[in-house]
Each structure stands twice: as structure tokens, then as C-alpha cells.
């Protein structure tokens, strides 16, 4: 009788503790959700080659660029920007710095108010881009899965998307996150170039 009672009471404790455990688990899960950024979606293009496109140059619309500008044998950054985007203005000075360090950045002007405004921005704030793509209707941006500006894609020497960064590139996230990835891509490009050189000789 006493044994049956203790087993029954321990069962009761277990049943009483279960909701508490479930509640704590849910709290931890939701608490983590508070500190995660739902806008940081990983790109569906990671590990895939950049989509094919043909876009006019922002300075001279009679010149067309294709996806070949992203397949140069060197890793590079593809930066999506627009003059209507305040964060793009905030990040622009740092992009100028990166360009001065010799990091190739391709600019994709995304659905800007006008081409004149965009060109004026580049003339006054400086032009960090090796190539300036002008995506007036945002159709190429859709192929890249862009959903806002600024966004920055890391692209390897073979023209594959390696990483998509949402939000501004600044000194902090560059040195902590993006620069190590970019250096790795540079080493991969060097190794690939070395292999090709070895085959030729």
C-alpha cells in the first residue's frame, strides 16, 4: 500500500513537472528568437553560379554587361544599392575604403529613382565599383533573390555565389565575418590559378 502510494505520488510529480519543463523549453526557444534577425535569410543561390543577365552600364546605357563581369577568375563582391536607401549612403564610405584596398566590387544599382540621381551619387560620393550595372526595373535583382538594399554577395573566382550579406558592410562585420571568407576565396582562386599554370607548363 505504501509503495503504491509513493509510486503514485512520484508519478504525480512527474506529471506536474512536465508542463514546467515544456514551458522552460518554449521560453528558451522564444528567447533565442528575440535575438535572431528574421531578415537574415540565407540566399537560395549559395553554391550556385550567378544567374545570366544583360544590363546596361550606369554611365553609358549603350554599353551592355553580362554575367561575365562576375566571372573574372578573381573573387569579388556584388553590392546592391540605390540612392533611395539611407543605409547604402552609410555604407558607401566603407566601400570606397575597400576599393582603395584593391578589393573588386561590382555595383548593381537597384530600381533607383532615376539614372541621373545614381550617377550624381557616384560622382559626388566616389565610385568604389569596378563595373556599374543599372537594373532599372529590378528584374535581374529578382534573379539574384534580392529583397532590399543594401545587399552584398560574395562571389568566388568561378562566378558562384558563396554568401549573401543583408544590410550594410561596415568595418566591424567586414573584419569579423566577411574579410576571413573573402581571404579564403582569394586563396582558392590562387590555388586554382596555380593548378592551371601547372597544367600548362
Amino acid at each position: 500500500m505504501a509503495e503504491a502510494q509513493t509510486s503514485k505520488s512520484s508519478l504525480r510529480w512527474l506529471v506536474l513537472a512536465l508542463p514546467l519543463v515544456a514551458f522552460l523549453a518554449l521560453t528558451v526557444f522564444l528567447l533565442r528568437g528575440l535575438f535572431s534577425d528574421p531578415t537574415e535569410l540565407s540566399s537560395a543561390l549559395v553554391g550556385k553560379p550567378v544567374p545570366a543577365f544583360s544590363l546596361p552600364d550606369i554611365y553609358d546605357t549603350s554599353t551592355e554587361h553580362t554575367e561575365a563581369v562576375l566571372k573574372t577568375g578573381e573573387p569579388l563582391l556584388l553590392n546592391v544599392w540605390a540612392t533611395w536607401c539611407p543605409t547604402c549612403r552609410a555604407e558607401h564610405a566603407f566601400l570606397n575604403e575597400l576599393a582603395a584596398q584593391g578589393i573588386p566590387i561590382v555595383g548593381l544599382n537597384y530600381k533607383d529613382d532615376s539614372r541621373a540621381k545614381a550617377v550624381n551619387w557616384l560622382n559626388t560620393l566616389g565610385d568604389p565599383y569596378v563595373v556599374n550595372l543599372f537594373d532599372e526595373r529590378g528584374m535581374v535583382a529578382i534573379d539574384f533573390g534580392v529583397y532590399g538594399a543594401p545587399e552584398t554577395f560574395l562571389i568566388n573566382h568561378e562566378g558562384e555565389v558563396v554568401y549573401r550579406h543583408v544590410g550594410d558592410v561596415n568595418a566591424r562585420n567586414w573584419s569579423q565575418l566577411l574579410a576571413p571568407m573573402f581571404q579564403q576565396l582569394q586563396q582558392q582562386a590562387k590555388a586554382a590559378a596555380g593548378e592551371r599554370g601547372g597544367e600548362q607548363s
Binding site: 535569410l41 540565407s42 540566399s43 537560395a44 543561390l45 529578382i142 534573379d143 539574384f144 533573390g145 529583397y147
Partner: peptide, 8 residues
């Protein structure tokens, strides 16, 4: 759409 923006 999924090819560009993911399952999301």
C-alpha cells in the same frame, strides 16, 4: 520563386 528566394 523558390529558386531565387528559397523555401521561405
Amino acid at each position: 520563386m523558390v529558386a531565387r528566394y528559397g523555401d521561405f
